[in-house]
Amino acid sequence: FIFGTETLGRVPPSLTVLAPSSEELQQGKATVMCVANKSFPSDWRLSWKVDGRSSSGEESRSPGALDGLYSWSSTLKLSTYQWMKVGSVTCEATQGSQTLVLEILSRDQCSHL
């Protein structure tokens, strides 16, 4: 079933923030990923905050939409040392100047880290 895009209006993505793996941390790296699912239109952007301060990540987009909805991800690269000092990481989905969705990952929620 394909949605007519004109009927969708604005659909905010659902966000999932994935913590770095313990194997990666042992290598001195910490990659945090934010996956945004099923949004419309395609002009949503993901941004990061580390302990409330803006931080830059790498956004990767798939070329097309599934069912008329867009999914994409952004990765935030830190060192293990930086990760161990972090209290929380926030992924924000913005459209224009508005932040409409955010997902917070607290490091102390990650038992193996």
Rank of each mutant, 00 (worst) to 15 (best):
S14Y: 07
G52R: 00
L8N: 00
L15E: 02
S71M: 12
T90R: 13
S54D: 07
G52N: 02
F3H: 14
G68S: 11
R61D: 02
V50D: 09
T16N: 10
T7P: 02
A19P: 15
G87H: 12
Y70V: 01
Q98F: 14
S79G: 01
L78T: 01
T80M: 04
L100E: 15
Q109T: 13
T5L: 06
K38Q: 14
L46H: 12
K49W: 04
S47Q: 12
W72D: 09
C110A: 06
P63T: 06
R10C: 04
N37M: 08
C110V: 15
S60V: 14
V35S: 09
E6D: 15
S71F: 13
C34K: 05
G28F: 01
A30K: 05
P41H: 04
I104E: 15
C110M: 11
S73L: 05
E92G: 08
E58A: 11
K77T: 14
T5S: 09
A19S: 15
R107H: 11
G64R: 10
T94A: 15
P13G: 08
S42G: 11
P20H: 12
V101Q: 09
G4Q: 13
S54G: 01
D51W: 06
A19Y: 10
L15T: 01
G9L: 08
R107D: 10
L25T: 03
C110Q: 12
E24V: 09
S14F: 06
L46A: 04
S88L: 10
W72Y: 14
E92M: 14
P13C: 03
E58W: 11
L78H: 02
V32P: 06
P63S: 12
T16S: 11
A30I: 03
V86N: 04
S60W: 05
C34F: 07
V32M: 05
Q82I: 02
S106I: 10
A93C: 00
G64K: 07
S97C: 05
V50I: 13
F40C: 01
S22L: 06
